[in-house]
Design a protein around this nucleic acid. Structure first.
Ligand SMILES: [Mn+2]
Ligand SMILES: [Mn+2]
Ligand SMILES: [Zn+2]
Ligand SMILES: [Zn+2]
Lengths: 139, 139
DNA sequence: AACCCTATTTAAAATCGTTCTAAACTGCTT
DNA sequence: AAGCAGTTTAGAACGATTTTAAATAGGGTT
């Protein structure tokens, strides 16, 4: 009775990938398993390389980058860049905010409605607001 | 009558650098001139390399990085990292926010009090809030 | 001024995260 | 089974930044 959310099956991931016209290859399924089972994550390519390696899954780093970029392009992931010039991929694609601990480079989600942003300034001429990100930097 | 803020003299920059125990070398004075005269800027090392080159100032890229990092350490600049894994240095060190145009990678300052952030969530246990950054991403 | 010591600058190499290349492989349709 | 496009791969390449170690230049002392 410990599992809150049952793990998604490989078939479910296969369906998901097909929805985005991505072939359900072994590599993409393995990464989908790491990314989309369990709680939301903020993860770098290098972290995923270690995780696949530790699980005995063989996959080149280029494939990890390719896959993360493809998942991002179709909207399954969100890219975040912070202090250290390393790209993190957020499995939570809802519009939300973050605590950020610069010591550990860890991110913690803040639900969108936990921060009230009223009276935002108007976007400069010729531009629209695409998204508002609040980063609460911790010490 | 076009100049609002008179340019700071080299002597003023010399004093400023000495306050932070940085020797007023030719290179640091040249960069201080580019950074701290005129309006606030968000500038990369590479941009400064071009500006110094165009002005006929000889300076290695390593020195530009060294200087920007030293200025940042003493609080004369603020570091900002965004989409493209290039570090930008903000000459406005006040607590403020930004519009960001991902097409041009340009930042526009938003004064701190132009955005009301009330009822922020509490920092996680063992942490304090160091700073809150709002980035309004434009399209 | 000449001297000295240390901070600073420099060119070049190194590092690091990420992307590109081109060849091998694999999922899928026929 | 064959064929083809999509995918993976190792390795090279890339771009931003840091490090190295040698040369230079501030700034104090005589
Ligand atoms: Mn990317
Ligand atoms: Mn830095
Ligand atoms: Zn998140
Ligand atoms: Zn700014």
């Amino acid at each position: 009775m410990l599992d809150q959310k049952p793990n998604k099956t490989e078939d479910q991931h296969t369906d998901l990938l097909r929805q985005f016209h991505l072939r359900p290859t072994r590599q993409r399924l393995a990464l989908a398993d790491l990314l989309f089972n369990g709680p939301c994550r903020h993860v770098s390519a290098e972290q995923l390389r270690l995780e696949t390696k530790n699980k005995g899954i063989n996959m080149s780093l280029a494939t990890i980058y390719n896959t993360l970029n493809q998942f991002t392009k179709v909207g399954l992931l969100h890219e975040i860049n912070l202090d250290n010039n390393v790209t993190y991929f957020d499995t939570n694609t809802d519009h939300h905010h973050h605590f950020f601990d610069p010591k550990t480079n860890k991110l913690i989600d803040i639900p969108r409605d936990a921060i009230s942003l009223n009276a935002l300034p108007d976007a400069p001429d010729g531009h629209d607001v695409e998204r508002v990100d609040v980063i609460i930097r911790l010490s």
